[in-house]
Every structure is written in C-alpha cells, then in structure tokens.
C-alpha cells in the first residue's frame, strides 16, 4: 500500500457544545504503532472511534488505506480492515466465552460455520494465550472485569485485520496479562499491522510505540518519542515524567 494506513484531514467532532476533537490532521504510516495519551476527556476514545468508522466526524475527512470513511464503500472497507478492542465490553448474555470467539471468527469469514477446525484451533490458541481457557464455557455475567477485558481483546485479535485500534486495553489487567497484551500487540505489528492504542500507562512502552501523541481538549499538543513527549509541559502536566 503506497499511502498511509490512516489519514485525517481537519477532522473535528462535537457532541453538542463540547468539541471532543478539533481540526485534527494526522497521518499514520503502515506498520506503525502509535500511542495516544492524555487526560480523561481529552478526545482519545473519540479519535479512535472516528478512525474505526464508528463515529461520524462533524467536519473533515478520514481515510483508512486510502478509502474515505464518509462513503458507504469506505466504511465497508473499514469493517474489513479495522479491529477494535478494549472499549466496548458488550457481549451476548447467552453466549459463552468460546462461542463469542467462534461467532466473531465466523462473522469475519474465518470458517463457514462454528466448529470448523480452523476456527476451533484459533479459538483454543487465543483462549490459552489470554488465560481464559478455564472459563471458556462461562457466560459474560460470570466473568470478572479483567476477564471481560481479556475476552474483548481476544475478540479483536481473532479476526483478520490491517489496523488494530485499542482503547485502554490494559485497564483492569493484572501485570502478567498486561505483559502478554503488549507482546501480542508487538507481534501484530511485526506481522505488518498498524496499531493505534490509547493508554494511561505508557511507561515501559518505549520500544513498542513508534510515536506518542499527547491530546488536550481534542488537540494534539505534543508528539514524538515517549521520552520527548514526557519532557514537554503538557507531558509534565499529565505526569508522564514521573
């Protein structure tokens, strides 16, 4: 792909009187791993939802792999290409953990039907990786918050995608799970995927994140390597220097 994986041109998004994202211009190269940091309400989640095609920008243009998300075809492409994790937490109350994974895999064309060996193998691998194997037959109401988060991430990873959008994926995870999460993200990137991840705990991710964007009130006020961003006034206000 010649162009950038994601391109935003003068994108704004307002919720009533509140402008969550303001005139944002951004280009994310293919295969990059970009971190988004900022205070609560700084616009990180809105930006990720816009890129995933789940929110419509109030103004501006968003392209994923060169496809304009303002068009029906562009959004269809985004559904193929963009995987979202960490933000939703909405599950079917009647489906088990394993069935959720099978459902998403089948819906993305991994197999014709649930029980397909390919799907089965992929589900087993992810359940083991996410330490959810002992709860594979549990329904969501029987899962703790951290387990739900793991399931959400597994759902994002089981489907084929070119762009992975993660909204605070490390929230509620134990240290071991958090370590595995970043390993998985790194593996995804090494396979050629592009990653956009919002987090409140970027510490220790210097090697993973190619670039960090610091948002304040919907605007990018600092960008660059994690250490450089942490050293800016905005980074200090956020406490990245500690």
């Amino acid at each position: 792909m010649a162009g950038p994986a994601v391109r935003l041109a003068a994108v704004s998004r307002a919720f009533g009187a509140v402008e969550a994202v303001r005139h944002l211009d951004l280009e994310v190269a293919e295969g990059a791993c970009i971190g988004l940091v900022g205070h609560n309400g700084s616009g990180k989640s809105t930006l990720l939802q816009l890129i995933a095609g789940r929110l419509r920008p109030s103004s501006g243009r968003i392209e994923v792999d060169g496809h304009d998300l303002g068009t029906h075809a562009g959004r269809a492409h985004a559904r193929h290409a963009v995987a979202v994790g960490g933000a939703t937490g909405a599950f079917y109350p009647d489906l088990t953990v394993a069935e959720h994974l099978e459902l998403v895999a089948v819906a993305h064309g991994l197999g014709e039907r649930a029980g397909n060996p390919v799907v089965h193998e992929r589900v087993d691998a992810l359940l083991t990786r996410a330490a959810l194997e002992p709860r594979r037959d549990a329904v969501p109401s029987q899962l703790s918050t951290g387990m739900r988060q793991k399931l959400d991430l597994a759902l994002a990873l089981i489907r084929p995608s070119r762009l992975l959008v993660l909204d605070e994926p490390d929230r509620g995870l134990d240290p071991a799970a958090r370590h595995r999460l970043w390993e998985d993200v790194d593996a995804y990137r090494r396979d050629g995927g592009t990653v956009l991840v919002a987090t409140h705990q970027p510490e220790g991710l210097d090697a993973l994140l190619d670039e960090v964007l610091l948002l304040e009130y919907g605007e990018v006020v600092a960008r660059g390597a994690l250490a450089a961003v942490a050293d800016t006034p905005a980074g200090r206000r956020l406490g990245l220097d500690r």
């Binding site: 269809a76 939703t88 909405a90 599950f91």
Partner: peptide, 14 residues
C-alpha cells in the same frame, strides 16, 4: 440492534 451486535456483528464484513 443490541449493544452486543453493535460491538461484535456490525463491525464485521457481514
């Protein structure tokens, strides 16, 4: 459309 469908089925190429 339920929340689960919005999260799991709508973002698919179905």
């Amino acid at each position: 459309v339920t929340q689960a469908e919005a999260s799991l089925l709508l973002p698919t190429p179905l």
